Computed example of a mutant assay.
Amino acid sequence: MAATPKQPSPPTHRFRGQVYRAHHPRWAYLPTSGEGAARHGGRFNRPGRPALYTALDPTTAWMEAQQGLPFKAQPMTLVVYRIDCAGVADLTDPDVLDGIGIVPADLDCAWEDLADRGRDPPTWRIAEALIAADVRAAIVPSFAPGANAAPGTAIPRNLVFWQWSETPPCAVRAIDDFGRLPRDAASWD
Rank of each mutant, 00 (worst) to 15 (best):
A3C: 09
A3I: 07
P10R: 05
P11W: 05
T12V: 15
H13P: 03
F15P: 02
Q18H: 13
Q18I: 10
V19G: 01
V19L: 00
V19A: 03
V19T: 13
R21Q: 02
R21M: 04
H23G: 07
H24K: 10
H24V: 12
R26F: 05
W27G: 02
Y29L: 11
E35T: 00
A37G: 14
A38W: 02
A38Q: 04
G41M: 05
R43I: 08
N45P: 02
P50C: 01
A51S: 14
L52F: 14
A55C: 09
D57I: 06
P58N: 02
T59Y: 08
T60G: 01
T60Q: 05
E64A: 03
A65V: 05
Q66K: 00
Q67H: 07
A73W: 00
Q74Y: 01
P75G: 06
M76F: 02
V79W: 03
Y81D: 01
R82L: 06
R82N: 11
G87M: 04
V88F: 05
A89H: 00
D90I: 10
T92C: 15
D93E: 13
P94F: 00
P94N: 00
D95M: 02
L97T: 06
L97E: 03
G99T: 12
G99S: 15
I100C: 10
P104I: 07
P104N: 05
A105E: 15
D106W: 01
D108H: 13
C109Y: 04
W111C: 07
E112S: 15
E112K: 15
D113F: 11
A115G: 03
D116K: 14
R117Q: 14
R117Y: 04
G118H: 07
P122M: 09
T123K: 05
I126E: 06
E128N: 07
A129H: 13
D134R: 14
V135I: 10
V135E: 07
V135C: 09
R136L: 06
A137C: 09
A138T: 08
A138R: 10
I139N: 04
I139S: 05
P141E: 11
S142Y: 06
P145K: 11
G146I: 04
G146H: 05
G152K: 08
P156M: 11
P156V: 13
P156L: 12
R157Q: 15
L159E: 08
E166Q: 11
T167Q: 13
P168N: 03
P168Q: 02
P169T: 12
C170S: 15
A171H: 03
V172T: 06
V172W: 08
V172Q: 07
V172L: 11
V172F: 08
A174I: 12
I175P: 01
G179A: 07
R180N: 12
L181F: 10
R183H: 10
D184A: 07
A185Q: 11
W188Y: 08
D189E: 14
